[in-house]
Nucleic acid binder design. Structure first.
Length: 261
DNA sequence: ATGGTAGTAAAACTA
């Protein structure tokens, strides 16, 4: 049995976060790091900084400097896909990498803006499209890790003041239901498996809330969802605040899964 | 908190 470590991190601009990402990656050496909100187009992704410490890179951004997903890995993937099979492809939000025996799905789910906005309906639809994509094109005949910024806090344990957030796009009942629709395909929330009933564990702290981290005002919206069969082989799942200690941290934190393979 | 900050860019827009 070997350990396969997979991490996910919304970097909020990879070029502004290299100083925090590269030292962390070089110290912890996970097999895979999924990144979201890289905010860089494919011609300007800082691949060299990753290659210097022995990581291969997949990245899929856009020309507008928004969104963007990437995947750094110790081994080259056998195969990869960016975006959905049909329009709108959202290649800057979905990246799938196939390694021997493990499929990694890296998503940056649309935030939704406001529950009365068309972008919220787009978010709900996005989960439906993801569900169909996973069901039809990926399947569960092998080990699957679905990682990323899902922009959904699944339960009351996952936000600071649940009563005040019923109409928030990341906590509205419809958002939770859409998210759970994908989960119901056969995923386990790995952080919750290892930390059942434990409140106050957050992966996102709004820059606009003063001293959010020390006051524990945050959201658990970044997740590692593991196919049910594979979830039996987990060793640990934890939030790593390491990159938060750097100057100018991201508003998100790193989430790590350790799997026996 | 009907704020707040940080990122993209080069004035708003998104989170």
């Amino acid at each position: 049995m070997k350990l396969f470590k997979c991490a996910t991190f919304n970097v909020n601009s990879i070029r502004s976060r290299l100083h925090a990402v590269i030292p962390w990656l070089n110290e912890k050496r996970p097999n895979v790091l999924c990144m979201q909100e890289t905010k860089v187009d494919n011609d300007h992704f800082p691949v060299e900084a990753f290659r210097e410490i022995g990581y291969s890179l997949l990245f899929s951004g856009n020309k507008e400097g928004r969104n963007g997903v990437a995947l750094a890995s110790l081994n080259e993937p056998d195969h990869y896909i960016t975006g959905f099979p049909s329009e709108p492809m959202d290649a800057d939000r979905l990246l799938v990498a196939q390694f021997s025996g493990i499929t990694i799905i890296n998503t940056y789910v649309p935030q939704g803006y406001s529950i009365d906005d068309a972008r919220f309906q787009y978010k709900l639809e996005w989960f439906k499209r993801l569900k169909e994509f996973i069901r039809a094109d990926i399947g569960f005949n092998h080990n699957v890790l679905w990682c990323g910024d899902m922009n959904v806090a699944p339960t009351d344990l996952d936000v600071t003041n649940p009563k005040s957030k019923k109409d928030h796009v990341c906590f509205h009942e419809d958002a939770k239901k859409a998210f759970h629709g994908v989960v119901a395909l056969g995923f386990v929330d790995l952080f919750r498996k290892h930390h059942p009933d434990e409140p106050g564990n957050y992966t996102f702290f709004d820059y606009r809330v003063k001293d959010a981290v020390s006051r524990r005002i945050g959201w658990r919206v970044d997740h590692i969802m593991v196919s049910t069969g594979f979830a039996r082989y987990s060793e640990a799942c934890y939030i790593d605040l390491g990159p938060r200690l750097a100057e100018k941290p991201s508003d998100h934190t790193v989430l790590v899964a350790e799997m026996f393979i």
